[in-house]
Nucleic acid binder design. Sequence first.
DNA 1: TTAGGGTTAG
Length: 524
Amino acid sequence: MRKRTVFVFNAFIRALALAGFGEDAVCVYREMNESGVGSDRFTYTYVLKACVCLSSRSWGLSLCVRKGKEVHGHVLRHGFESNVHVGTTLLDFYARYGCVWYAGNVFDTMPVRNVVSWSAMIACLVKNGRSFEALKLFWEMEDVSLNLGCNSVTMVSVIQACAALAALGQGKLIHCYVLRKGLNSILPVTNSLISMYSRCGSIEIARCIFDQMDNRDVVSWNAIISGYGIHGNAEEAIMLFEEMIRRGFSPNKITFVSVLGACSHAGLIHKGRKLFDSMAHVHNIFPSEEHYACIVDMLGRAGRLDEAVKVVDGMRIEPGPPVWGSLLGACRIHCNVELAERASLRLFEIEPMNAGNYVLLADIYAEARMWEEVNKVKKLLESSSLQKIPGCSWIEVKRKIYSFMSIDEVNPQTEQLHSLLVQLLVEMKERGYVPETKFDLCELDQVEKENIVLGHSEKLAVAFGLINSSNGETIRITKNLRLCEDCHSVTKVISKFANREILVRDVNRVHYFRDGVCSCGDYW
DNA sequence: TTAGGGTTAG
């Protein structure tokens, strides 16, 4: 073209960004700047979208963020920061790269905010694991004086926040709100409600909503199938999968992740393998890394480590962090040092920033009583300046959410909780409970070890629940990591002799403790 | 003739 106007450049950058060619879009933007045609408010929304789809693999995350910050600078220089579309796109750019502080800063300084900018900020908080703040912001938004009016998009994020916190009370409140606003028949809203109820431990309500839907899409089926999966009911998940096919729905990648995950949680290996094989042959979906990770997890969990390794070695695509991570997790369950070393060596190479991998390997060495190796891994972790994610648990009592960390001086009741736990410990030991202290605590004596495990955040939350809720009420707890073995057995015992139903949603699934047994059948 | 936020998984 001889005459390239701002409009022409905009259209080209937009097209490239939409098609996922972030780098090319950024190049065209540079060309645009050099050509001297100028820019307008549309230019910045497109370039920022392009920065979101830059290939972080070849660029590196920090370079992607730097590129966006550069564009942010241009926005300020040209005075477009007061435009609500540009501001919201900027906010969303930071959100997608996990820069919550920058996103919040953009939000706070926007001269005009509308439903979309509020929704974007709420979504940003949810996506970055700050659901508690997301809910707070939502109630702030709902302040009548602001008179903004949320819509279905806002509500989807808010429902996700409740799901992430496993805050059933809040979730029900939000559900009522959705009904009052007449947003309940909008498919994405209903689908996220199904997921929310199952992740909050109430698969029954999730099923009820699913059964009452007039029209469903593949996402609705995926949501309910994965719901049964995290509740350990693989039979129901498989039945729904089969019904879905009978009714003419085409499963997608996520359907298979869900149903294979269900098989893995329940140890249904034969069925899982058959489903995996049917993917390509019957449904024309070629297994991606996530699906391989499910199969490796399924075999590994069941102790069939040799078969799991065969699957990894025979993969048609290069195995990455999910696959090696599943294998390492299986090594921890079955204490296989040799294989753990192979898997973690690869993981340290391709995923050096994940502290969890180091922790897993240290746990495996500790169980094998290889203290020297434990120390080596710990030193490696320290020198890399990575930090373990601290264990954290939440509990919702009377629609208020309380959180606990292992060493928690913030909560005034901590001392009371700890003494209750000590008292419970004595009673439990009389009933034959032995604290599980085999992992990663090599330099301490038995009493110190027991004290540390006793201070785990989920136990504090259970104790808080016992003190602050009435008999007959289910205690509902969420944990940011996987539930530890000791907490699992303690909660079983407590559910029996305190005669209470206790529900713990950990990062992977739901544990429902009743009368001394857990719904996961100790297989998780 | 161009614009911003959202559904299901591990």
